[in-house]
Design a binder for these strands. Structure first.
Length: 383
DNA sequence: AATGTCATCAACCGCATCGAA
DNA sequence: GTTCGATGCGGTTGATGACAT
C-alpha cells in the first residue's frame, strides 16, 4: 500500500474518524501522532491490512445506554463476534449458489440472455453476515482506491460479494464518519419532526442527522419511535392524535399540508406548530422541556422557507445572508478541536482526488451552509 | 435447565431513478 | 426516444440474544 495514494485530507479524515471503527485496536489511538505516521502505524505496518480486534459483544441489557465510549455499543455481533477472526474465510455466511433455484436462474440467464443481468454474478457470491476478514478487505480497498464503481469493488478487493452488498456494508457500517450507539433523545425528536414533514423518506431524514444511516434510522423508527408515539396516542403515520375527538383543540392537517408547495411561510410555521404541539401534548413535562430547545432549533431551520424547501426538494438552498445569524463559522465543529479539517473538508479532498461518490457519504444534498447549519443544530442538540 | 416468544438490527430484495450509449 | 447498466431507496427478512414461562 502506497501512502501517497491517499491525499493528506483523507489521511486526516482517517486519523480523525479512526475511533469510530469498532474493531480496530483502540490502544492505537494516539491523538498526537501526525496523520501520516498514524496511518502507517495502523495500516502499512500490518502489510497493507488492518489489524482487527474483535469488539465486546453487544450488551442488550443496556438498552438505553447512550454513553459515549468512542467504542460502539451496537455491534454486529454476528459478524464480529469474538473468534470470528478464526473463521476468517467466510464460514459464517450462507452461500448464494446453494440449492437448485439460483443455479437454475443463473443458467437460464446465461442461456436465454434475455432480461436484465443480475447485479452480480450469483455463482460464488456470498450472502449473509460479513466476517471481519471481509470488512478488512473492503476497508483496505476503499481507503486505498476510493470508491469506484461498486460492481468492480468485490473483484478488485478480493471479495466474494456482490457490489451492492459491499456498498451497503460500507455505507451502513464501515463508513468512518458514522456515529455509533443508539439515537439520543434529541436525535429521536429530530427524526420524529422530520418524519412528520418528509414521511418515510429515510435517506432524506438521515441526511439531516450526520453520522446516521437511513437503515439505522428506519430500524430505530420501527422498533422504538413508532411504539413511543403510539404510547403517546399519536399516529406514527400521520403524526396526529389517534383519537381526534379527545383533542378537539388540534386543528386537522394532512401530511400533504406539510408540503412546501405552499409558498406561504406562515403556513409552514403553523404546520410546524401542529406537528410539534400534538406531540408535546402527550409528552411528560420533562420530555417537553427537553424537546423545547429541539423544537426551537428545528423551527429556526424549518421556518426558513428556502431551507425547508431544500429539505423537501433535493436542491440545496441558495445562500442567504440572514442565515449568518444562526450559522457561525464551521470551525466551531465540536469534533474539530484538534484543528483538523471537518469531515466535509476531508471528503471534498477525497472526492477531488479519488472519485468517491458523494452520495455514498450521505452528503449529496448538503452544501456548505446546510452542513454548517447542521453542525450548529447538532451542537445544540448535544448540549 | 429447557423451551418458547419477543425485540433488535444487519443484510437482502426488488423496484425506482439516473445517466450514458 | 429507447435501452441498459449502475446505483439508490424503502420494505422486509432472518439470525441472534434477551426475557418469560
Amino acid at each position: 500500500m502506497c501512502l501517497n495514494v491517499l491525499p493528506r485530507k483523507s489521511l486526516e479524515a482517517f486519523h480523525l474518524s479512526f475511533n469510530t471503527w469498532p474493531f480496530l485496536d483502540q490502544d492505537k489511538i494516539v491523538n498526537d501522532t501526525p496523520p501520516e505516521e498514524f496511518y502507517r502505524s495502523v495500516v502499512e505496518d500490518k502489510g497493507s491490512t488492518f489489524e482487527l480486534h474483535a469488539p465486546k459483544p453487544r450488551d442488550r441489557s443496556q438498552k438505553n445506554n447512550n454513553l459515549d465510549f468512542g467504542l460502539p455499543q451496537i455491534l454486529p455481533t454476528r459478524t464480529l463476534k469474538r473468534g470470528d477472526d478464526e473463521m476468517a474465510d467466510g464460514n459464517g455466511g450462507v452461500e448464494c449458489n446453494q440449492g437448485v433455484g439460483l443455479a437454475a436462474v443463473s443458467s437460464l440467464a446465461t442461456v436465454s440472455n434475455m432480461g436484465r443481468q443480475p447485479c452480480c454474478d450469483k455463482l460464488g457470491v456470498k450472502k449473509g453476515p460479513w466476517t471481519a476478514e471481509e470488512d478488512k478487505k473492503l476497508i483496505n480497498f476503499i481507503l486505498t482506491n476510493g470508491q469506484c464503481c461498486w460492481r468492480a469493488v468485490p473483484k478488485l478487493a478480493g471479495l466474494r460479494r456482490c457490489g451492492k452488498s459491499c456498498r451497503l456494508r460500507w455505507t451502513n457500517y464501515l463508513r468512518p464518519d458514522l456515529k455509533r450507539g443508539l439515537l439520543t433523545e434529541a436525535e429521536e425528536q429530530l427524526v420524529i419532526d422530520l418524519h412528520a414533514r418528509l414521511g418515510n423518506r429515510w435517506s432524506k431524514i438521515a441526511a439531516r442527522l450526520p453520522g446516521r444511516t437511513d437503515n439505522e434510522i428506519k430500524n430505530h423508527w420501527n422498533t422504538h419511535i413508532k411504539k413511543k408515539l403510539l404510547k403517546r396516542g399519536i399516529d406514527p403515520v400521520t403524526h396526529e392524535p389517534l383519537h381526534k375527538e379527545a383533542k378537539p383543540e388540534e386543528s386537522s392537517s394532512s401530511p400533504d399540508d406539510l408540503l412546501p408547495e405552499s409558498s406561504n411561510n406562515n403556513d409552514i410555521q403553523e404546520n410546524d406548530g401542529i406537528v410539534i404541539n400534538s406531540d408535546d401534548n402527550a409528552r411528560s413535562p420533562t420530555e417537553n422541556s427537553c424537546s423545547t430547545e429541539n423544537s426551537l432549533l428545528l423551527d429556526s431551520i424549518c421556518n426558513d422557507e428556502m431551507l425547508l424547501n431544500s429539505l423537501w426538494m433535493d436542491e440545496p438552498p441558495l445562500a442567504d445572508p440572514s442565515w449568518n445569524k444562526i450559522i457561525p463559522p464551521a470551525a466551531e465543529d465540536t469534533n474539530n478541536d484538534m484543528g483538523y479539517p471537518s469531515w466535509e473538508d476531508n471528503y471534498t479532498g477525497l472526492s477531488d482526488c479519488q472519485d468517491f461518490g458523494v452520495h455514498d457519504f450521505g452528503f449529496d444534498c448538503f452544501d456548505t451552509i446546510e452542513l454548517s447549519a447542521l453542525d450548529i443544530l447538532e451542537m445544540e442538540l448535544n448540549r
